[in-house]
Design a protein around this nucleic acid. Structure first.
Length: 577
RNA sequence: CGGGGCGUAGCGCAGUCUGGUAGCGCACCUGCCUUGGGCGCAGGGGGUCGCCAGUUCAAAUCUGGCCGCCCCGACCA
């Protein structure tokens, strides 16, 4: 049967870029006829996208099944009660889509499925003998993103593989977590991605360990700090580093703080220029209101406060910079002249990069005045924390090797949840001794569309996308240069049938178009191999073109199936994990 | 939610300032021609100019309101 005829398929390619598309994957998926937008952050996945996404899902299934995970399918439509039990009905706020049924009962659309999975488990799992379990599903998730953007990268409805592990004890969780880590490496390897697994911030949700799988691309919204030499990699939120050393050595003498008049010098740069002191010898003092209480954070002048690290240090749920009036009321001076000396009415947090520093400049808590010769730990006290965000130019913390900061997109996340849901929702089992104990859980996600987007972002050129053979909608496209030519058509028909019979995923471009159009289309939609059937057929030869390398080899028509199968096989990404 | 931009044929755009016949390229349909990188020629179809109200003899164009989409920011288990 001739089913995969390009002339019969709906592949609406566009010659021009739709105006709304900014990032590469968005542009190419639209132009390639993979997707069409229905609304902000809501997309139709057309035939090519669906084929690709199904291939991603098939790989995910194989690898999840391989670690003994069991596939479920849970509702996306959830009664509010389940989420109220865990407390996340409130925590999720506006990010959750909410609705009411005809009787006015509150429902919501699932953003993730910890609650539902836990509710299944607690009804049925009563004994340690039933543990461990790993359950997963591939399901549509809904998030009312404040700002959907970047095509399929940040959307309001998307497909996620999410799995959950249930173990009796932390050691068991370690095993389940490690199984997932390896499965994820295998999945992303097989999808042909270049990625890095990084330490991630576990959030305020009580997790102990978590890793994100990141793909470097300018379309990403996360920042990853990594070191080529040591292999260190971490989310910027959590990354640690050795800062760039101070521009000049500190004055080693034991000096007392002294006021200097600094009229209208408010920012670090202004003070630096006015006093002719490098920003690395100035301390910046930030007043922050965390969970309603004030804190003073002190950092080196050229450093940035890491919001996540501050949150971790204070254990607060939320925080914001103090309003100028609040700062004035608390410290007696306007923003721009604030400093840590003499502060009694709030905790002072000092960044570790200031450890051992002497005789620095800071605000005097008196308008238009700064202090010189201020020494942290002597002239003022505080709790030492790592508060600083890693900056360009910093080096690896133990070796001093160079670090780089790259924009990345998160394609997967593995997470040790701990007991959060077991406690809040009452998931307990009896252990060996007959005592009731809570189950320890893990949660593990993969953004299916993001895998496709990441592949497009990683592998494209001026002509279009160049998808890995494992997730491309077709493995090979057959292109008779002139379909009206009976001999070319016959050869094409035969090769199509033979490839089909050999299990090759082949698309037959039988359209009566000029070769240029067909070549351009094939390149645009990113099919890894193209077989040209043209003039050389007279001497029994075809051409096999590699989309990514643009390499072309002549192959004998009589043995074409073997050659093509070998090429596909050689190009298929594998995993060594 | 704050800032900016856009909304005219399937796609990309002009026309809006200065009110008066709705246009261009690509795509699409028909015929001929052509077939190795988005052919050529000829003919043709397709639009409540985002929506509603107002001003006017007359509104794509001016005024007011609303809606939608994109970008920056805030936000992001």
């Amino acid at each position: 049967m001739f089913t995969m005829l390009w002339s019969r398929l709906f592949i609406p390619t566009l010659r021009e870029n739709p105006a709304e598309a900014e990032v590469i994957s968005h542009q190419l998926l639209l132009r390639g006829g993979y997707i069409r937008q229905l609304g902000a952050g809501i997309y139709n996945y057309l035939y090519l996208a669906q084929r690709s996404l199904l291939k991603v899902q098939a790989i995910v299934r194989e690898e999840m099944d391989a670690i003994g995970a069991q596939e479920f399918y849970l509702p996306a439509l959830n009664p509010a009660e389940v989420w109220q039990e865990s407390g996340r009905y409130d925590v999720m706020g506006d990010n959750m889509f909410r609705l009411k049924d005809r009787f006015g009962r509150p429902l919501c659309l699932g953003m993730t499925h910890e609650e539902v999975m836990t509710s299944v488990a607690r009804g049925e799992i009563r004994s340690y003998k039933q543990l461990p379990q790993i359950w997963y599903q591939i399901q549509t998730k809904f998030r009312d993103e404040p700002r959907p953007k970047s095509g399929l990268l940040r959307v309001r409805q998307f497909i996620m593989k999410d799995s959950y592990s249930f173990d009796l004890a932390p050691e068991g969780l370690d095993v389940s977590y490690e199984k997932h880590r390896i499965a994820y490496c295998r999945i992303f390897d097989r999808c042909g991605l270049e990625y890095v697994a990084v330490e991630a911030h576990s959030g305020a949700m009580g997790g102990s360990q978590s890793q994100e799988f990141m793909v470097a691309t300018n379309a990403g919204e996360d920042y990853v700090v990594s070191c080529k030499q040591t292999g260190y990699a971490a989310n910027l939120e959590k990354a640690v580093s050795r800062p760039v050393p101070p521009a000049a050595p500190d004055d080693a003498a034991a000096l007392e703080p002294a006021e200097v008049h600094t009229p209208d010098q408010k920012t670090i740069d202004e003070v630096s220029a006015f006093l002719k002191v490098h920003p690395t010898a100035i301390m910046k003092s930030l007043v922050l209101i965390a969970d309603g209480k004030p804190f003073l954070a002190v950092l080196r002048g050229d450093h940035q406060l890491s919001e996540t690290k501050f949150q971790t240090a204070t254990g607060c749920q939320e925080f914001r910079p103090a309003h100028p009036e609040e700062a004035r009321e608390l410290l007696g001076a306007n923003v721009g002249s604030l400093g840590p000396i003499g502060i009694k009415n709030m905790p002072v947090l000092i960044d570790e990069a200031l450890k051992g520093r002497k005789n620095l400049v800071c605000g005097a808590n008196k308008d238009d005045y700064h202090l010189i010769n201020a020494t942290p730990g002597e002239d003022f006290e505080g709790a030492w924390h790592d508060l600083r965000q890693v900056a360009e130019g910093d080096t690896e913390i133990t070796t001093g090797a160079p670090l780089e900061v790259r924009k990345c997109v998160e394609i997967g996340h593995i997470f040790k949840l701990g007991y959060k849901y077991s406690h809040s929702m009452g998931l307990n089992v009896l252990d060996h001794s007959g005592a009731e104990v809570p189950v320890i859980m893990g949660s593990y996600g993969i953004g299916i569309e993001r895998v496709l987007c990441a592949a497009v972002e990683l592998f494209s050129d001026a002509n279009g996308m160049s998808l890995p053979v494992s997730i491309a909608p077709f493995e090979v496209v057959l292109t008779p240069v002139k379909i009206a030519d009976a001999s070319l058509r016959e050869a094409g028909d035969k090769l199509y049938a033979d490839l089909k019979a050999a299990g090759v995923d082949v698309l037959y471009d039988d359209r009566e178009l000029s070769p240029g159009v067909k070549f351009k289309d094939a390149d645009l939609v990113g099919i890894p191999f193209r077989v040209n059937i043209g003039k050389k057929l007279a001497s029994g030869m075809l051409e096999l073109v590699n989309r990514r390398t643009k390499e072309m080899v002549e192959i004998p028509a009589a043995e074409a199936v073997d050659y093509i199968k070998k090429a596909i096989c050689a190009a298929r990404p594998t995993s060594s994990h």
